[in-house]
Amino acid sequence: MPIRERRRDDNPRLLALWERSVRATHDFLAEADIDELRPQVRDVYLDAVDIWVFEDADGLAGFVGLADAQVEMLFLEPQRRGQGIGTRLLDHARGLRGALTVDVNEHNPQAHGFYRRYGFVDTGRSPLDGQGRPFPLIHMALPRDAAG
């Protein structure tokens, strides 16, 4: 199976994948926002969660980061989107943690739609992101019996 637990030496490749994915999907972020987030992702976030990576013969394609049952991050190589990798990573996370939750940027309708198709339901909204910036979040939960 191409999903494995993250190794510490994966972090530089994960950071690079994170940035490519964010640039492809988070058009609401300014360059200054990405510049501010990059060292936080590198120095804090990647080590603050349990990460599983999807890597196959074509290389590192995506990763999911969990804090308990909260999906804190799910990022895919832009050219590998639509190949079922995100679903496989969520299936793996669900197998580990059961009923999952996630916060999605309101300005990222593709991600919101992906989670809804998977079976997540909206449970609330916050006007600010976790760092207090004006990027509203949609809170979502996956019922234990959802998505199979």
Rank of each mutant, 00 (worst) to 15 (best):
I3T: 11
I3C: 07
E5S: 13
R13C: 05
R13M: 14
L14K: 00
A16C: 06
L17W: 03
V22D: 09
R23L: 14
R23F: 08
H26K: 10
H26T: 13
D27I: 01
F28D: 12
A30V: 10
I34Y: 09
I34H: 10
D35W: 05
E36D: 11
E36T: 13
L37F: 06
L37N: 05
R38I: 04
P39T: 01
V44G: 12
L46W: 09
A48P: 05
V49H: 14
D50M: 01
D50L: 01
I51M: 00
V53C: 10
F54H: 09
A57L: 13
D58F: 08
D58R: 09
L60H: 04
A61G: 06
F63D: 01
F63Q: 06
L66T: 02
Q70F: 13
E72W: 15
M73V: 15
F75V: 01
L76I: 02
L76S: 02
P78C: 03
G82T: 08
Q83N: 12
Q83C: 11
G84H: 07
I85R: 00
I85L: 01
R88E: 05
L89H: 15
A93T: 03
A93P: 02
A93D: 01
G95M: 00
G95E: 04
G95D: 02
G98N: 04
A99H: 06
L100Y: 11
V102P: 02
D103E: 15
E106R: 05
E106Q: 10
Q110S: 07
R116M: 12
R116H: 13
R117N: 12
R117E: 03
R117A: 08
R117Q: 14
Y118W: 09
G119N: 15
D122K: 10
D122L: 13
T123C: 12
G124N: 11
G124F: 14
R125C: 10
S126F: 09
L128N: 09
D129W: 10
R133K: 12
R133S: 12
P134L: 02
F135L: 05
H139M: 14
D145L: 10
D145M: 11
